[in-house]
Amino acid sequence: MEENTITVPADKTPNLIGVIVTWRAITHQGLTRSQNEDAHWVTHVIEGKTDTESSSRYIFAVADGLGGHRGGAIASRMALKAVKEEFHAWHGGRADNVVSRAIQKANQNIFCVAQTDPELFQKMQTTLTVVVLENDSLTLGHIGDCRLYRMRDNHIDQLTRDHTMASDMLQMHMISSKQASTHPGRHQLTRSVGGDPFLNADINRQQVRQGDTYLLCSDGLWSELTDEEIRSALEETDVSRGCEKLVRLALSGGAPDNITGIMFHIDVLGQQAANPFSWKSLLGKK
């Protein structure tokens, strides 16, 4: 996790504007794959606006390289490199714009490299889901079949739509939800980063609430779990315990794919007076 240090005048107490979360990320190779083609990134940035005001921003990202192909591991890491570069250069402006640019940059970089190597061509692809928490909003950019779940008021919602053949057929009312859950096209991607020169990403923005808990994960995790198992983990008051529970359950089910999960809980939202001596703990909080 990256940390930015803020110098606080001795006679002033800063106001923290934004969001503070508790989070835990776990990635695992799984029990059958020879390498981990998943990649993830979490960063927390605190930017000083004035001597008495600072803003807090979190970024979470997961990329799942196209399974079983040498190019998949390269693609997932290239995607996150492009995301990092775009966000490191971001010093204001709409979050949805920077998320869109990051995904498009990742797609162009991966697609261009894939054209130079016939062995990687059409195999050098990845999914990519990016979440930005800033002030009281969550900005989501999504391609593929990683998922973002939200637990709010004891109700779970899936905030992403899988870009798979089964999901597309469900959207067109060609199959039922029950059929989609076991359809052979459940993991057959219809959109991916690096697969085509032009990409249509899902970008949306939502309000967050204090007390919300989220799970961002690759399909290697959610496909091995029941809805009730995901609910049980998101109900945990300790995100580390909840995330560990999810990974443990997936491994006990055989874990044929790589596994990556990031759980985060909204602890503080809006503007809060912060003790000057608490900045270090806030920056390093997990």
Rank of each mutant, 00 (worst) to 15 (best):
N4M: 08
L120C: 06
A39L: 07
T13G: 01
T160C: 04
R186T: 12
A25C: 12
R191E: 08
D212N: 11
A274N: 06
D202V: 13
T7L: 10
T27Y: 07
I74N: 00
T213F: 01
P9H: 10
H155K: 10
K280I: 10
Q125V: 12
E235F: 04
I26P: 00
Q271S: 15
L66I: 12
K84V: 06
Q125P: 02
T213L: 06
M172T: 11
Q171Y: 08
C112Q: 14
T182V: 15
E86C: 14
N97H: 12
G211K: 09
L251S: 03
W23C: 08
V131S: 00
I26H: 07
A89N: 14
L159K: 03
Y58T: 01
S76G: 09
Y149N: 00
W222M: 02
T139P: 04
G270T: 13
T52R: 11
D202H: 14
M1W: 09
A95H: 04
N36T: 13
D51A: 14
M172D: 11
S137P: 02
L159C: 04
Y214N: 05
L159F: 01
Q206W: 11
I262V: 15
A75H: 01
H163V: 09
V113I: 11
V62M: 06
M165H: 05
E224Q: 14
Y149R: 00
E228I: 06
R186Y: 07
I46E: 06
E85Q: 12
L66S: 02
G261S: 15
E229Y: 01
D219R: 05
V208P: 03
F111M: 11
C243H: 00
S223I: 03
M165S: 05
G194I: 08
Q158D: 03
T182I: 15
P184I: 14
D153I: 03
Q35D: 15
D257P: 10
H88N: 13
E53K: 12
T7W: 08
H40Q: 14
V42R: 02
N97P: 00
H187L: 12
T22S: 14
F277E: 14
G270K: 12
E2C: 00
S181K: 14
T226H: 06
E119Q: 15
G68L: 12
S177T: 11
V193F: 10
T52F: 10
N258S: 14
R152A: 01
V98W: 01
E86K: 11
P14D: 01
Y58C: 04
R150Y: 00
I203M: 13
A82V: 07
L31R: 15
C112G: 05
D168L: 10
S281P: 04
E3I: 12
Y58E: 04
Q158P: 01
I230H: 04
G242Q: 03
D196I: 10
L128Y: 02
H142A: 08
S252H: 13
S100K: 14
